[in-house]
Design a protein around this nucleic acid. Structure first.
Lengths: 133, 133, 133, 133
DNA sequence: GTGGTCTAGACCACC
DNA sequence: GTGGTCTAGACCACG
């Protein structure tokens, strides 16, 4: 078994209309969500990732900054950026605030498709049972 | 007891983060989808709607143009804009698919922050009341 | 009495060692704190302020972005940036989170001078009485 | 009951946001200020301290160099670094002035977000316990 | 080597 | 006109 089969592999789609820095954020969030990136693990360096993705280093910086703001990532100057342990580093209040921002962003997104908060709640309730199986 | 007495009541929310022209598009789409606007019916004039909504006429123009591009609306120069008879609306099934994709993506995202579906539902329920104010 | 005697007058000190964008943030915060900027008032445009301060527009963008993240400022694409009504737009949870971030930043700052949280609490308690006079 | 049994115990907090070399400087300054380190006493060797703190030797070098620049420390090539007899430490009065300036500035800042001195005190008291863990 | 800040200037989206 | 994103590349701070 190759321990590296599920490493962090970010892919930028220039045609998606989604800003590059957001694509980076989303894919790092997903990597954490599905366990490919674990607490304490170092993220690619800013410059390294920029070269990989063929984007400007500043674009990566911006993505990392936003992740740090949200508490998902910790940056140590001169050392690198790491996945932080949110549960440990954030108070309940802070976690609630992150949830709030994420949900509001999502609501804004779905309403641009004409869906309502009601629709999501209904869907999620069903989804929850589905997962619970 | 006429359920259609308010045929087309568009409301712009400047704080939603959704572009004005999109808000107009969405609400016209929804009006068509739920039967408040029917094929052949005339839309408000660009200037009239702009005054109503207190937005720049160009914003309304843009919304109508995009609707025309999608085939939902036909513009007759010098006469006005009308709902065209092309069936461009998403079916319920399609809408459900889109919702599903969006919500699952979001659930994946928030789980990277250690939140659960339960957390979202709770938050949304509160949020819904807050908006309802 | 000239109504404009106390307008927003931002001054960048290139020798202070404080990043320009932080200097902008701090001075806008102060302007709001002392009433020179009020809720709903429009901030200088990004480009306008950049020219005024003789800094790059991106530097102003960054300052405004951070203020928006903190909830002090609301940006409307294509229209401008405005002082937002924090009390209205933020939930208790969100306000608590902003407080948390501000205080933690301050603690980090003062500990670089060798002061402790204890020192601040002591000072603030005295200060509070002083103000209360 | 020797109060000085732990003459110089430096602790690096990687999460504080304060540069390592500053943390070293501050703790040496404080050790001098409260009498744990006296004039003429030898500081730990660069390499020894680097190993102790698990930091890069260059980081210790930098801290010592800055202390030497300030006159607090004298380095004798091939022999070691020593506390010099120049009185560079802030008096209590000076420290109080600095604290005052910092705190008042911060109070002004947070008031732009609608927070009160009371809010900070409450938060700090909680925070203090949290850190104390 | 790492990340942080800033500039100059381009191009896009929204009003 | 407004703000938003991105690039190219420089210089600084930290380890």
């Amino acid at each position: 078994m190759d321990k590296k089969e599920h490493e962090l592999k970010i892919i930028i789609d220039p045609t998606s209309g989604i800003p590059y820095y957001r694509q980076i954020i989303l894919q790092i969030e997903m990597a954490v969500a599905d366990g490919r990136m674990k607490v304490g693990k170092q993220l690619p360096t800013v410059r390294g990732l920029a070269v990989d993705l063929q984007v400007n280093p500043n674009t990566v910086v911006r993505a990392y900054r936003e992740l740090e703001f949200r508490g998902l990532v910790t940056t140590q100057h001169g050392t690198g950026s790491f996945i932080s342990d949110i549960e440990m580093n954030m108070s309940d209040v802070e976690r609630a605030q992150v949830l709030s921002q994420l949900v509001r962003g999502f609501v804004s997104q779905i309403s641009s498709y004409g869906f309502t908060v009601e629709d999501i709640i209904t869907y999620l309730t069903d989804y929850q049972e589905e997962i619970g199986l």
